[in-house]
Amino acid sequence: MTQSAQSQSQQSPVMDIVRNYGIHLVLAVLIVVTAILSPAFLTANNISNMLLQAAPLGIVVIGQVPVILVRGLDLSVASVMATAAVVATCFSGQDTDALPVFIVAISIGLATGLVNGLLITKRNVSPFLATLATMTLLQGMRFAYTQGAPSGNVPPIYRVLGSQTFFGVPYNLMILVVLAAFFSILLHKTTYGRRVYLTGGNPVMARLVGIHADRITIASYVISGGLAALAGLIYSGFVGIVDNWVGRGFELDSIVAAVMGGVALSGGRGSIVGGLFGAAILVVVFNAVLMIGLPIEFQIIIKGAVIIVAAAFYVRKTI
């Protein structure tokens, strides 16, 4: 028996709690500490702000989770987001074009996911490189199309969805909740979901029971691409100004959120709700350092430290 496996079997009840509720503890500690340091932190308006900002990242995370569950990761999400946002400005900028924008943007997202999935399954390209390549490719195509400077207006309905609230509850948060519920049910209550977990958790077994692992994997990337496009549309409505870098940083943030939330990069373990808790941590950290008034150097350092600490709460068999 290996040393790491031993230590796992010798867990104390305390370790058990840490392992199961680590992310919640980290989040709770963050909230309590910030609330003590800054009275403005736990006000209704600030909470509403944070929720508004959490939704785009949350939607990307929902897509990232099934991808990581099948032992992958998707670095192309930020590029898909930016492309969707550019698409949002490419039509007339009126609500009459909201549907065409939606269809084109989501199709680009789904197609990117399909290419990722095909490269990874049919050509055995590693997910890291496949999605890095589609990221670059999509960026180049976006640049070529806009000649580097996107220009145009976002349809007003996306502005509403991306930046308005309904009695304090942001519209984009409602979308997030609906999506989270839908995909949680998909992962936990359907055959597809069980196959995702088996494909990632035990590929040999999956093959033995006749699961088409390739199809499951491709489907996960397609979901991720589609959701990233949706997040891009919603994010474009957040400020209404689209540049080529909408969503920059979301690729790594979404992976970090998922891993902090207990989704194992080795596949087969974790949930959407966990990933969303991870996303919540990132949003809270972003807001907390502003509320406390930390200088930029410490903001970056704290984010790095929180990532490692939160991820460390999930004790794994092997790295």
Binding site: S38, A40, F41, T43, N45, N46, N49, Q53, Y235, F238, V239, I241, D243, W245, V246, R248, F286, N287, L290, M291, G293, I296
Partner: peptide, 23 residues
């Protein structure tokens, strides 16, 4: 009162300003 970086991003500018307004 405060100086916070925004990465020259309209979205981040909005997020940072929203937080500063609360503060």
């Amino acid at each position: 009162l405060d100086m916070q970086y925004t990465d020259w991003s309209p979205a981040k500018g909005k997020q940072v300003m929203a937080a500063l307004i609360q503060k």
